[in-house]
Structure formats: structure tokens, C-alpha cells
Amino acid sequence: MKPLIERYGTAFAGMAMVLAFVVFAPNFATAGNLLNVVKDTSFLAILALGFGLALTIAELDLSIAEVASLSAVTAGALIQGKYDPSLAVLAGLGVGLGLGLLNGLTVTALRVPSLIATLGTAAIARGLAFMETQGVAFVGRWPTSFTGLSRGTTLGVSNLVLWLVAATALTYGLIKWTRTGARMVATGEAEEAARLSGIATGRMKLLGLALSGLFAGVTAVLLAANVSSAAPNMAGDYFLYAIAAVLLGMTMFEPGHPNVPGTVFAAFVLKALGNGLVLMGAAYYVQDIMLGVIIIGSVAFSASVVKQAAFKV
């Protein structure tokens, strides 16, 4: 019984909370509102999956939101300039991947701790985003071939949901089923042991941070496509949400480890919570306070699980 509570306690609590909103929050359980929550979960979960990949190799990527914003305005600038939408998508993803690689190289080659390296990258990306846009947003009637990435449907299913499913499946498959994923996990769990076993730990760290940047780029393109505009701080609101999703996710399924199902489920719970609070008339700032409590509480909780496990020896 105890392991069940350890593994699924917060997941059940999250479900209970969503059910409470279904009962008590006006209009929460309507199809339209739930679809919005799920769509919003897509952006958050994809961004958080990237942060989780960085955390898997035991690095923090604090640049995800600024990198995503810069990716979005880069794609937006190309759309505004009437370039082909596929070029805009590639540019958005390229900016994310490029800055992710930069983070990775700063950490592995220059030996700057990721906390500092990604903070620096965040500042640079923010500066560049404001430079590109001169502080205003790119807004326009963008081609549906671009906006359709987020607003369209395939076989009746929202494309955003499909992107979420694809990102989740790819990340899960990478971590759980491939040799590279196993080596990333080993690097994050015990870098010295991994190195002594011949794992190229530097390359794993580079990969984790590069993927984190790439996922920020994907999130950015989908965000811009969804609102057919791009602003220099458009992903900022997702930053704390993404960190909270990964950390809250670490309290479920595989307690103490960043894990894919936990991240995605926590992203949904957090978005449902934010949405439900708004519907129940809570002020906007309540969400920030909630996120702070969840971030601290999750780490305190999952750390206690780790300690508990360690004492069983």
C-alpha cells in the first residue's frame, strides 16, 4: 500500500482536485473549457519535457522561456517578411537548438555551472528578442499553413494534442528504450560512475541541454502559430509553470526521478488548477503563489522519498 501512495499519491491528489473543479467551478467541465485546458497543457508539457531532459542529465536549464520567446519572434519575423512558413518553422527550431547547444557547450567545454550558464543565455536571448522586435509584438494575418500547426485538426483531433502525444512518446521512448537514454540517465544519476564505465558524459550533457533548447523551440513555434503573433516575452509565463510541472512530476510515477508521465500529468494538473482558480474568481496573482508552494513542496516531498529509500539499506 505504501509504495502506491509514494508513487501515485500526488497524482491522485491532482485528480481529486480536478474533480473538485468539475463539481464546484462554474463552466469548468464544459467541452470548450476542457479542450482549452488540454491545449494549454500542450505548450506547457512540451516545454517542461525539455526542462526534464536537462534535469535528467542533472543540469538546470533556466533559459527555456527566453529561448522560446526568441525562437517565436524569429519565426514571427520571417512570417511577417513573407518568407515560406516552413522556413520560419525551421528558423524557430534552429534558434532553440542552437541556444541549447550553446548552453551545452558552455557547461561541458567551459565548465560553467548550468545554473549560471543558462541564466546568462536567458539574458542574451531576452535582449536579442527585444532587439529583433524593438519591443513590440509581430501580429498579422499569418498563413494558415503556419497557424494550422496549432489551430488545425487532423482526423478530428486538435493538432496541439497530437504534438503533445508525439513529444511525450518520443521523450519517453528515448529515455526508457534507447541506449542513449539509459546513458543520459546514468550520467545524471552518477556522473563519476558513468564516466568510469566509459560513457561520454560530456556528450550526454550536451545532448540533454540541446534537446531542452529544441523543445523550447517547438513550444515557441506552436505558441506563435496558435495566436498568430509573436512577442518578445511571450513564453515568460510558462517558465515557473514548466519548472513546477517537472518537479511536481517527480513526486509521482517514479518518485525522485524526473519522468515523462509525471511531467505531462503534472502539467495538466497545474493548468487545470490555474484555470479552475480563475473560473472560481481567484485573483491572477494566486497562481504565482500556488506555483511557488508547489515548487518548494514537491522538492521537499520527493527529497523525503529519496531519503526514505536511502535509509532502507
Binding site: V185, A193, A194, S197, A309
Partner: peptide
């Protein structure tokens, strides 16, 4: 790697 499984540890780097 204490939190990884026995099998993962035995085959670390030589999966």
C-alpha cells in the same frame, strides 16, 4: 548509481 537498478548498474556503459 544508487537509484538505478541492479541490471542498469551492471550494464552501465555496456548495454
Amino acid at each position: 548509481a544508487p537509484r538505478l537498478s541492479i541490471a542498469e548498474n551492471v550494464f552501465m556503459g555496456a548495454e
